[in-house]
Write a protein that binds this DNA or RNA. Structure first.
Length: 288
DNA sequence: AAAGAGTACAACCGCCACCCT
DNA sequence: CAGGGTGGCGGTTGTACTCTT
């Protein structure tokens, strides 16, 4: 295959794999420092390395290149990653251009190992950046189909037997009560989230599902999460007319959020518009 | 102290787009 | 235009380290 010249050479046992030794690093660093990067395929031979060009390039870009930051991501960097991921998705290389000193690989790893879990804990689907919410209909709990997809997406439920969701009469999806609920808890447990913990999203939702004075609970101290949650919540409520939940003070709550943080409805609307337009034309997103 | 589980990060793999012949 | 070479990207795997029991 084109681009896989490494593989044929590996079969001949000429190409070393695995972690780089300090000696190899030194050879590569000295070579690039002295001669610069010409053709990566010729670099290993000229630098005296038994690696493929691709491997050398990766080592240079992700580890040896001057100017790389080391250490944990700052809160500001995390915010930027989350925001950009919300806008452009898994385009790590593009996101990396907005974080000087960080590599796409580093950002990708950080996202997969930390940020994803952080968002899930906040009750936000890391794929869609929308809140993971469950609407209800007393004992027959209904999940609006869109949200069911979000849930499946967030918790990989599509791989979990397949028929955990059942279509209900009104086009929504019926929670197979205990079965489903325990699956959700199981999934949370698997994700390291204590289903009974104070910050557990699904457990709270389960309480709502059982119609114990359902009321929206938003953490106003987390402005982004609240905003996202509220936005989707209102949309979901407006299209789920059969829901037994009846939040007449929806507008009031929304106003509270706008009042609480520095954002206002217009700014939020603007972001939604930008997001919508970027869905169709991601390559033209103004990256700076 | 040892074994197993969990986590973070480095590196690899396969695919794709672009360029050159 | 077709085909091969190359670099770049995102997903995935491997490995070393840390934590828990």
């Amino acid at each position: 295959m084109a681009g896989d010249t490494c593989h044929s050479k590996q079969k001949e046992n000429k190409i070393k794999k695995g972690l780089w030794s300090p000696e190899e690093d030194e050879k590569l660093f000295n070579y690039i420092n002295r001669f610069g990067v010409g053709s990566w395929t010729s670099v290993p031979h000229l630098a005296g390395l038994e690696r493929c060009g691709k491997s050398c390039r990766l080592r240079w870009v992700n580890y040896l290149r001057p100017g790389l930051k080391r250490g944990s991501f700052s809160q500001q960097e995390q915010d930027i990653i989350i925001h950009l991921h919300q806008l452009i998705g898994n385009r790590w290389a593009q996101i990396a251009t907005k974080l000087p000193g960080r590599t796409d690989n580093e950002i990708k790893n950080f996202w997969n190992s930390s940020l994803k879990k952080k968002l899930i804990k906040q009750g936000i689907n890391p794929n869609t950046h929308k809140p993971i919410l469950v609407s209800n209909e007393c004992n027959k709990s209904i999940i609006p189909s869109g949200m069911a997809v979000e849930l499946q997406d967030a918790f990989h439920m599509s791989n979990n037997g397949g028929d955990a969701f059942h279509m209900s009469n009104n086009g929504g999806l019926t929670f197979a009560d205990n079965f489903m609920t325990s699956n959700l808890f199981l999934d949370e447990s698997e994700m390291g989230i204590d289903p009974m913990g104070y910050d557990c999203n699904l457990f709270t939702q389960h309480q709502h599902i059982n119609c114990e004075a359902p009321s929206p609970s938003f953490d106003f101290s987390d402005t982004l999460a609240s905003r996202t949650m509220m936005d989707t919540f209102i949309k979901a409520e407006s299209r789920e007319s059969s829901s037994c939940t009846n939040y007449s003070n929806m507008n009031h709550l929304y106003a509270e959020i706008c009042k609480y943080d520095e954002w206002n409805a217009c700014e939020w609307q603007e972001l939604q518009t930008v997001q919508a337009s970027n869905v169709g034309d991601l390559d033209t997103y103004p990256m700076g």
